[in-house]
Design a protein around this nucleic acid. Structure first.
Lengths: 338, 338
DNA sequence: TTGTACGCGTTATCAA
DNA sequence: TTGATAACGCGTACAA
């Protein structure tokens, strides 16, 4: 039982009695190697338990078959589900996924972008378009293909896949307003450096104006992502003089927090107040009443994002932007205001 | 506007009119460089937007300040929360986290372990002790520090941090049995290559035997992780001749699925049947009735795991196993059987 | 305090 | 089909 050191290409080559070039070819272009030597090499690889060193491979080939993804947080079910689909699809295409999370902080995101690129990520998946010009410059000079997901903006520099947050929320808001609601509350994630959140808020404003309702009637609270924060926001929203008849929430988690708080305060949903969410995570159908929300095809988005990004990396043609359809899920947490 | 290529150490050195060695020192051991030259070098680094190439750095230094983590799935809130804490703590200590997921498949996990090690991960976080001897050999010969989380086993080869799944479930099961339950159902995640799931099932068996209840009275169903799968399992459990009075679930997600199915079938929880979970994710307190479960300190586990793993990587002393306390949360989905 | 020069493990070019 | 060999970008003895 001697201490064996980590086997290298050279070790494999020696054991198989060939050159390192041949071993390398066996691994990367097997069809260029004769059957007999390939068998011999593969045997040596197994015997030694050889694994290529990515650092060296990266330096020599400038490719890693690795895709990096930076998401705001792993604690959010929507990203988790989409990301899992993203990874599954990448695997099928022979790529490995590396994930980093930014905690919704743009400076951390920048750091992660640099880190993943330095590590040789062939392509990057990012969330949303909001990004400092410095880091955009960096991305462009490094020429690393980057795809923005969870967003849809044909005019943006980076290609994107997602849905139109503005349109989606408009659809819901118009429906709600048509039901007779005019005193409106909204709980949103912080809109600074979060284009998705901003678009959803603007959609509500826009829909109100279009219906001739003064946006003075909109009570907006911005708060961080969480059930607890949603509950607190709801409390202060209904504590005001003008209690809204409906509360739009920027995502399902905030909405569920609002619903919990309503129950706690003895406010009946939807009889006394309607609540809506966004995303349609599993949770939305587990609460009572079921949450009215906007369904987003996360898995499909993740899988499609993988396809597109791989095409980008491999120099194939790809769409500048891909729009996915959302569906408004009218459920029991929303009712008509007579 | 010329096409600039990626700046290297050499470029920085030239611009600052020093040698590459000095630049390297500026980055890795600033105290060895005089103030004036350091300033000059830092300026050049900024001007060029230089980022070290990890591949090259890894090859030369054999360290990357990177920790890899392989979790079964990102879609599970328990891992997500613990992992986020893990990452936050790592960041504070100057390490970067790379995440991969195995979809609960051991062959994929092996692939990911090799991949992360080849990429130069200084240390690895793994979930659970179940692992083939081949990959254990690989881990040991590569001498990469690896810490097992979500498990606690003083006798295992790899150091671990977590809680005693067996003891935790025994605590709950004994309490339930003392409440008068004797016809028992259980919905578990697949126990093959999942020591946590296995320990929880064994705990129920053990507790029954200890109370003099034949384990013939245990109806066990193994199914994959998910709300829907939990619902299906529950349905077949109550479709049997001997309907259980309590259903233990291996985790909260399965339990919530069971509760949803019970509601759908018009079976009142806990009056007609009690249901328990494990983990205490946020969801547990959002369903109605609130789910009786075992609370696990995920965040604390993640943060502590980071500390220990960094100590391992840096050659400091560390505990072979760290046990965290769990707490049984007696909530309304469990009631006495008279 | 700073510079020179070598080696890390791989891929790719070119010849054989 | 195979082999020799030059990069790739960095850290670090060792020397100055």
């Amino acid at each position: 039982m001697t201490t064996r050191s980590i086997p290298t290409l050279d070790d494999v080559a020696k054991l198989a009695a060939v050159s390192t070039a041949t071993v390398s070819r066996c691994l990367n272009a097997p069809e260029q190697v004769s059957d007999s030597t390939r068998k011999r090499v593969n045997k040596a690889v197994k015997a030694l338990g050889y694994t290529p060193n990515f650092g060296a491979r990266f330096m020599a080939a400038k490719r890693t078959n690795t895709i990096g993804a930076i998401i705001p947080t792993m604690e959010n079910a929507i990203f988790a589900r989409g990301l899992q689909a993203f990874q599954d699809e990448l695997r099928a295409k022979g790529y490995t996924l590396l994930v980093a999370s930014s905690s919704y902080k743009s400076d951390i995101e920048e750091e992660q972008i640099r880190s993943l690129i330095a590590r040789g990520a062939d392509g990057l998946l990012l969330i949303g378009h909001d990004r400092s010009s410095a880091i955009m410059q960096y991305l462009l000079t490094r020429k690393v293909p980057a795809l923005v997901a969870w967003a849809h903006d044909p005019s943006a520099v980076l290609p994107s896949i997602g849905f139109d947050n503005f349109e989606a929320m408009c659809g819901l808001a118009k429906h709600v307003i048509a039901m007779g609601h005019s005193r409106i509350g909204m709980i949103s994630a912080p809109t600074e450096s979060n284009d998705r959140a901003r678009a959803r808020v603007q959609a509500v404003r826009h829909s109100m104006q279009e219906a001739g309702i003064s946006t003075q009637n909109l009570k907006l609270i911005e708060t961080e992502y969480g059930i607890e924060t949603g509950a607190i926001a709801f409390q202060s929203l209904v504590g005001n003089s003008q209690v809204p008849t409906v509360v739009f929430c920027g995502n399902d988690v905030l909405a569920v927090g609002a619903m919990r708080q309503a129950k706690k305060m003895g406010i009946v949903v939807p009889d006394e107040i309607s609540i809506t969410g966004f995303d349609d995570i599993e949770l939305a159908r587990l609460v009572e009443p079921e949450l009215c929300t906007v369904h987003v095809p996360h898995r499909k988005m993740g899988a499609t994002a993988a396809s597109i990004l791989v095409d980008m990396v491999e120099g194939k043609s790809f769409p500048q932007t891909t729009q996915l359809d959302v569906k408004i899920e009218l459920r029991d947490s929303l009712s008509t205001r007579l």
